[in-house]
């Protein structure tokens, strides 16, 4: 097993919560709280537990990354927050209340950009304004004026200035993801859910979009929950990383990321950054090995370590 860099030995101890993590509040009072939440698919013999009892409190303004082996229930957790899935047991609190009590504004982006091919980029991004209150009431009157300017400003922010009139098929994968992010943010959500939004992009485009995402988060201070396979991505963007075990998923480590924002791509090759990603990697390797789901991979010494 890869040894974490010496200076990070402190976090590799048995305690699931790293010493430098903020003190946990009770889930019921957090911005997003999970209280002993479980999810089981199917019934009886064939029932599979996707999520073991999970307790988690996410504070307003947090950028939380969820990492873990494939099929560990990261996306399940995201869907629970979005109310796309109901927990089998336990309670979920959003904005200090139980889910279903008071709606909060959520933005969501998947790896698959799912832009509507019959609308140009501007109208695609404007779609949430047509649906989400309070914008929907003004949609008809503001569509050609205020909303249009708002969309164009956001497009400029994500580097899509001048592409408003283009159609999705005219854009590259990275540009579609920029548009997808804009669509998730245009209605000023107080919670942004991202399920591997940069997963299908090449490394350079991905790093470019990390920068875009970081700027957006710093500008809006919205709460973000990011599911990712990319450990560098999680450490670059998040200020808190939750590592999940293999199925049935549970959070095996909840770590604060100490680096100050804004972070640069160069920084991701610094020793303490690499140490953090290596530590995460070893945790996930262990989790994979535990269930036997992990294929034995020869252990190369990572570059620069």
């Amino acid at each position: 097993m890869t040894q974490p860099a010496p200076r990070l030995h402190a976090v590799a101890d048995a305690s699931p919560v790293a010493p430098d993590a903020p003190p946990a509040r009770s889930p019921a009072r957090a911005f997003i709280g999970f209280d002993e939440v479980t999810v089981t698919y199917g019934r009886g013999e064939s029932a599979t537990t996707a999520l073991a009892p999970t307790t988690l409190a996410i504070e307003k303004g947090d950028f939380v990354a969820l990492v873990g082996p494939s099929g560990c229930g990261k996306s399940t957790l995201l869907k629970l927050v979005a109310e796309l899935l109901k927990p089998t047991s336990g309670n979920i609190f959003v904005a200090g209340r139980e889910v279903g009590a008071e709606p909060i504004r959520i933005g969501m982006a998947y790896q698959n950009a799912t832009l509507l091919p019959w609308l140009n980029i501007r109208d695609n991004v404007m779609l949430p304004l047509k649906i989400v209150p309070p914008f929907r009431a003004r949609y008809r009157s503001a569509r050609k004026g205020e909303f249009r300017d708002r969309v164009d400003a956001l497009l400029e922010q994500v580097g899509l200035a001048g592409f408003a009139e283009k159609y999705p098929w005219q854009l590259s994968g990275g540009m579609m993801q920029r548009a997808n992010l804009s669509r998730a943010l245009i209605h000023e959500p107080n919670l942004l859910l991202l399920d591997e939004p940069f997963g299908a992009l090449d490394q350079f485009t991905r790093e470019e979009l990390w920068g875009v995402m970081q700027d957006l988060w710093m500008a809006t201070k919205t709460t973000v929950l990011l599911v990712t396979h990319d450990l560098r991505e999680s450490a670059f963007l998040a200020n808190r990383i939750c590592v999940m075990s293999a199925r049935p998923g549970r959070i095996i480590e909840d770590r604060h990321v100490p680096f100050a924002h804004p972070r640069s791509i160069d920084q991701t090759y610094d020793a303490d950054f690499v140490g953090l990603t290596q530590h995460l990697r070893s945790l996930i390797m262990e989790a994979r090995a535990e269930t036997g789901s992990g294929i034995v991979v020869p252990q190369h010494a990572p570059e620069g370590a």
């Binding site: 109310e83 709606p103 969501m108 998947y110 509507l116 047509k130 649906i131 209605h187």
Partner: peptide, 23 residues
């Protein structure tokens, strides 16, 4: 309709008619 797109619409609290009409 792609399930991801439906999820996006549902998290926007779009009604069934709105999903039908827009997507």
């Amino acid at each position: 309709v792609e399930p991801e797109l439906e999820d996006v619409m549902k998290t926007l609290k779009a009604s069934r008619t709105e999903i039908l009409w827009n997507v």
